[in-house]
Amino acid sequence: MATVKLTVNGRSVVGECDERTLLVHFIREKLNLTGTHVGCDTGQCGACVVHMDGGSVKSCTLLAVQAQGAEITTIEGLAKNGELHPVQAAFKECHGLQCGFCTPGMVMTAVDMIARHGGDLDEHAVRRELEGNICRCTGYHNIVRAVLSANAAMHSVREAAE
């Protein structure tokens, strides 16, 4: 057994797990944060995307012990003060979800993408960056619209602040 110490959604957590426990299973089973989904356990579908130390990672490709000391943000950690994150709000407004299974991973990937690219995103770039996330309902058109809408909204807020 291993002791894993992390900061998850701004809160320090400590948990015991087998050394072979994947980060996605640690998050879901030890921390009861079930918004991060297990889709394939092979890194192919993107349903398990979380942020680790500020960047997106597929949590089914990492052992929990590999994340020792890291700062993790899950889909549950995006909303602040009862308000949806702008990307979550855009997914809602643009109907960027259907069954919802892929949505947490898509949202987490989009938040990271927007942070890295700022206002410099177009449809081609969004589609390219979302290639590692699979939507089995094939709702990609509205997902891409949601990401572009959130990017525009977040970029205009940054410009207004400057």
Rank of each mutant, 00 (worst) to 15 (best):
H124R: 13
G46S: 01
A70C: 15
L33P: 03
L121E: 09
D120C: 02
G69A: 04
I114T: 01
P104E: 03
V50S: 13
I75A: 10
A125Y: 06
V107L: 11
A70K: 07
C60P: 09
D120K: 13
I114W: 08
G100H: 05
V38F: 11
C94R: 15
E93Q: 15
G46L: 06
L33F: 06
P86Q: 06
A67C: 01
C48W: 01
M106W: 00
E123N: 03
T36P: 07
D41N: 14
C48A: 08
K58N: 15
Q88V: 06
E123K: 02
A47V: 11
V111E: 07
C94K: 15
A67W: 02
V65I: 15
H85D: 12
E83Q: 15
M113H: 00
D122P: 07
A79H: 02
A110P: 10
I114V: 06
V87M: 06
G96K: 04
L97M: 14
T36N: 10
V49A: 13
T34C: 12
C40T: 08
Q66K: 10
H85N: 04
D41M: 12
S56A: 14
G46F: 00
G43I: 04
C94Y: 08
A90R: 00
G119Q: 02
A70V: 10
F91V: 03
L97F: 15
T36E: 09
C102K: 04
A90S: 15
D120E: 14
A79W: 03
Q44P: 04
C40K: 06
V87N: 07
Q98L: 02
H95A: 14
V111T: 13
A115H: 11
I114K: 09
C48N: 04
A47N: 10
A70I: 03
A79L: 03
A79I: 04
D53Y: 03
Q98C: 11
P104H: 01
A64K: 06
M108E: 08
V111L: 03
G39E: 06
D122T: 01
V126W: 08
P86C: 02
S56W: 11
R116I: 00
T34V: 13
V57N: 09
A110V: 01
T34Q: 13
T61P: 06
T61D: 14
V57A: 10
V38P: 13
A47Q: 08
Q98Y: 07
V107E: 05
C48Q: 07
G54Q: 00
H124C: 01
G55S: 15
L62Q: 12
M52A: 12
A110R: 08
V111Q: 06
G82H: 05
H95R: 13
G35R: 11
V49I: 15
M113D: 01
D41R: 01
S59A: 14
V107T: 11
G119W: 02
